[in-house]
Structure formats: structure tokens, C-alpha cells
């Protein structure tokens, strides 16, 4: 089905614009048209479907699923629910407080907080559209594993005393979010697609344009020299570069895809993308309202370590 977009790009770039398919310029333009068309169509369709599923899992409900679940099951469920539950970083604090208040253990709450931004539908759509389903699946599974493991470690460390004191005093009200009708779910989903598109379209276009440039102009194997599997520092470097790029997750993936074509190994690529999506400076600032410094740094440290291990692991086995 995705061949449709290749045909469309053939038509526009070679037939309409009359570009030469063997020239660098023609190839780059073709790449750009194919990928932008594909990504926007996939985003619209998949984000819509995900939003319909999401409308059944408001966080107000999810916290009740998670309270009183056995430890390991709780972590796995929290990471899984993180994928389908709506999350924006401005809800991070009420979400965190609401989970603890419902008796969800601290570590389980972190499993959710880690998976929710990292394994999101926008990243998965871009991975699926640009890298194929295998890499999207690897990303989904390793992302969940990172969320579960990091959450379990944070739980083991018994860091409850590093949660801001006032958090424990807050009591949730019994206010129930009204159940949506079918029509409202469709409206909610359409709304959600519009919101996401409005926010990320410049990044997607910019990212794909940069990717198209790399694709056409950077020599094959260029990155092998600097960031190949033989450089042990490549993975931690990728993670350090990835953290500040948070807002541009949608713009980073197309570039990374082009870089992988030029010899960036899979593990380093995965580690970079996870660092971009999982750890963000603005989210840390927001979370500092509910977490004391020590817990924030522990959180950053554990997630970073887990992501670096994912990078080394995949560089080793692929």
C-alpha cells in the first residue's frame, strides 16, 4: 500500500517537474515528496484511530486500574497504558499526584511517566512510515522494557521521601469525568488529530527536508567513520545530543532515518531517538514541582543508563 506514495512521488518529481531520477537533486526531491505525503497521511489515519482508543482510557480511569496491582504486573500495565493514555507535559503533575493518591506505587507511576512520552503514536507512525514495521516494533518493545525496568529500579530505591511533601496531603475529589458518546469520541479524535498536526507539521516538513538533503548529498558510509559500531562513545554521545531535542521528536526521526542509511548503527539510532522522546528539559522543570532534586536526578540517571544499555545491546546483536 505504501508503494502508492512512491508512485505519487514518481509522478510529481519526474513527470510533472521533469527532474532527472539519477541526479542528486531529483533523488532528494523525490524522497521529500514521497515521505511528506506518506507521513501526513499515516499520521492523520493512525493518530485518529489511537485517539478513539484513547477516549476509552482517560487517566482518571487508568489510575484506578493500576492501584492495588501486584508489583510486576503493575509495571507492565503502567508501561502499556502509557502508550494509549493521553499525556501532555502540562498534565504531568496532576497525573503524578493522582496516581500516588490512588495508591499506585511510586515505581509503577514512573513506569507510566517514562513510557507515555517515549512510546507515543507520533514517534511510532514516523518509525513505521520511514523505517518499516520491524523497527517500529523493536522501538515499541524496547521502549516498554526501558519503562518497566527503570520503574522497577526506582521502586526498589524506596524514594518516597523525595516526593514533595505536600503531594501526600492532597486528596482527590470524587468528580467523575462524564462518559463520552460515540459522536463525542469521533469529535475528540478529530480534535486530537488537528491539535497534533498543528503542533508538529513544521517539524515534520523540516525534518524530512533535512533527511532528503542527507539522503541525496551525504556520501554513503559517512557516519561509519565517526559513529560506527567500533566507537564505544557513540551511544552515550547520541544520548547526550538527544536529550535537548525533545520538542522536535517529529523532526528528528526523518533525519535519523537518513543518517542510518549512511551508516549509523541501529543501537545508536534507537538510543538517540529514545533520548529525544523520553527525557525532556521542560518536563523535568514541570516535574520539579512534585519531585525533590534527588529523585529527579535519579530518574534522569536511571532512564539514561537504560537507554544507553539499549544502544549497546542492539549494536552488539545486529
Amino acid at each position: 500500500m505504501l508503494i502508492l506514495f512512491t508512485r505519487l512521488a514518481d509522478l510529481v518529481a519526474y513527470d510533472l517537474l521533469g527532474l532527472n531520477p539519477t541526479s542528486r537533486f531529483g533523488e532528494s526531491i523525490h524522497f521529500f515528496i514521497e515521505d511528506t505525503a506518506k507521513i501526513f497521511v499515516l499520521l492523520a489515519v493512525i493518530v485518529f484511530l489511537v485517539a478513539i482508543v484513547r477516549s476509552f482510557f482517560p487517566p482518571e480511569k487508568v489510575r484506578r486500574f493500576l492501584s492495588g496491582k501486584g508489583r510486576f504486573v503493575g509495571h507492565v500495565m503502567a508501561a502499556g497504558l502509557g502508550v494509549v493514555t493521553p499525556f501532555c507535559s502540562c498534565s504531568a503533575c496532576p497525573l503524578f499526584i493522582g496516581f500516588l493518591e490512588a495508591g499506585v506505587p511510586l515505581g509503577v507511576t514512573f513506569s507510566f511517566l517514562i513510557s507515555s512520552p517515549m512510546v507515543n503514536e507520533v514517534a511510532l507512525v514516523l518509525l513505521f512510515g520511514l523505517f518499516g514495521w520491524q523497527i517500529a516494533l523493536i522501538y515499541l518493545v524496547t521502549g516498554l522494557v526501558v519503562a518497566v525496568v527503570a520503574g522497577i529500579v526506582i521502586g526498589w530505591l524506596r524514594m518516597e521521601r523525595f516526593v514533595a511533601d505536600y503531594v501526600w496531603e492532597i486528596r482527590m475529589g470524587r468528580g467523575e469525568v462524564p462518559v463520552m458518546t460515540g459522536k463525542e469520541r469521533v469529535e475528540y479524535a478529530a480534535d486530537y488529530v488537528r491539535g497534533i498536526m498543528k503542533k508538529i507539521w513544521p517539524y515534520v516538513i523540516g525534518g524530512i527536508a533535512a533527511g532528503a538533503f542527507v539522503h541525496g548529498y551525504v556520501p554513503e558510509g559517512f557516519l561509519l567513520r565517526f559513529a560506527g559500531p567500533t566507537n564505544p562513545l557513540a551511544v552515550p554521545m547520541a544520548v547526550i545530543f538527544g536529550v535537548p531535542l525533545y520538542a522536535n521528536a517529529a523532526g528528528v526521526i526523518p533525519v535519523v532515518q537518513a543518517l542510518m542509511e549512511k551508516g549509523l548503527p541501529l543501537g545508536t539510532t534507537l538510543a538517540f531517538m529514545m533520548a529525544v522522546t523520553a527525557l525532556s528539559f521542560p518536563e523535568m522543570v514541570i516535574l520539579s514541582q512534585v519531585l525533590k532534586k534527588r529523585l529527579i536526578w535519579t530518574f534522569i540517571g536511571i532512564v539514561t543508563a537504560a537507554i544507553i544499555m539499549v544502544g549497546y545491546l542492539f549494536n552488539l546483536i545486529v
Partner: peptide, 27 residues
């Protein structure tokens, strides 16, 4: 935060009319 959570809201923004929660997580 105390008042937001007291209304039962986790996904912001929420909206309440006369103290009764009408919706959350959506504009």
C-alpha cells in the same frame, strides 16, 4: 493543584460548572 485534584481532574484542562466536573483533557 489541590483544587484541581479535588475536582477529580487529572488530565488538564478540566472544566466544572457550579462545582460539578463536566469534562477534562480537552479544549
Amino acid at each position: 493543584m489541590k483544587r484541581i485534584l479535588a475536582r477529580g481532574v487529572i488530565s488538564t484542562p478540566g472544566i466544572a460548572v457550579d462545582g460539578v466536573l463536566k469534562g477534562s483533557g480537552r479544549v
